[in-house]
Amino acid sequence: MPHFIVEYTDNIKNETNIAKLLEEIHKVLIAHDTVFPIGGLRSRAIELNEYRVADGTEDDAFVHATLKIGAGRSEAIKKVVCDALFEVITEHFSRLMSKRYLALSMELHEFSEAGTYKKNNIHARFNKK
């Protein structure tokens, strides 16, 4: 953990660089490697082909991100990280937002470790350092 998931409407795919967004998101999370182990970091983007925004009369678009983390981080660190992530998202889409209707949102999903199953040998690579 953490997992970062970004959903975006397909009507903006040619106007933005989602791979670059994920790269910038990783920079933020890696900067907090004492809170979030690098070996557990995952991100993914989901292009939405079927959606409806507002009243459906315009070519509106949206981007919604979810940060999923295990329980145990302080409220202060969650705020610092989420503020930094949303700043990256806002900056990434600022030019696009100045040209078209676009809704940006992000949520933090924190869950207990009970009921989650994980196996990961990537951590070992970073623990050698």
Rank of each mutant, 00 (worst) to 15 (best):
T116R: 10
N127F: 12
K129M: 13
G39C: 06
I89W: 00
F111L: 09
S74P: 04
T9K: 08
L22Y: 01
T34C: 03
N49P: 00
K20M: 09
A84L: 09
G72P: 05
M1P: 13
N121S: 15
K118Y: 08
V81Q: 04
S105K: 01
S112T: 13
L29I: 15
C82T: 15
I18L: 05
N11V: 10
T9Q: 02
A114C: 05
H123W: 13
E110Q: 15
A114F: 06
A31P: 00
N120K: 06
L108T: 00
T66F: 09
G39V: 07
T90C: 07
N17W: 00
D55M: 13
R44T: 01
K119Y: 14
I25Q: 01
E23N: 11
K118Q: 03
L102D: 03
I25M: 08
G72Q: 04
I38G: 04
N14M: 10
E107L: 05
F36N: 00
N49Q: 14
G56Y: 06
R42D: 01
K99E: 15
G39K: 03
L102C: 06
R42M: 10
A54H: 02
K78C: 11
T66C: 04
R44V: 04
K13F: 06
D10M: 00
E47R: 15
H123A: 11
I5L: 12
N14Q: 10
G39N: 08
R42N: 10
F86S: 10
L21M: 02
A124T: 12
T116H: 13
H123M: 10
R42F: 07
K119S: 12
D59W: 01
I5Y: 02
L21H: 02
V53Q: 04
H32C: 04
P2I: 10
C82H: 12
N127Q: 14
F36Y: 15
H64A: 12
L108M: 09
V35R: 06
R52C: 10
T66A: 04
T116F: 15
G39L: 08
H3V: 07
L48I: 12
I5M: 06
R100I: 07
A45I: 03
A19I: 08
V88N: 02
A54I: 02
E23D: 09
P37L: 11
V81T: 11
G56A: 08
H92E: 10
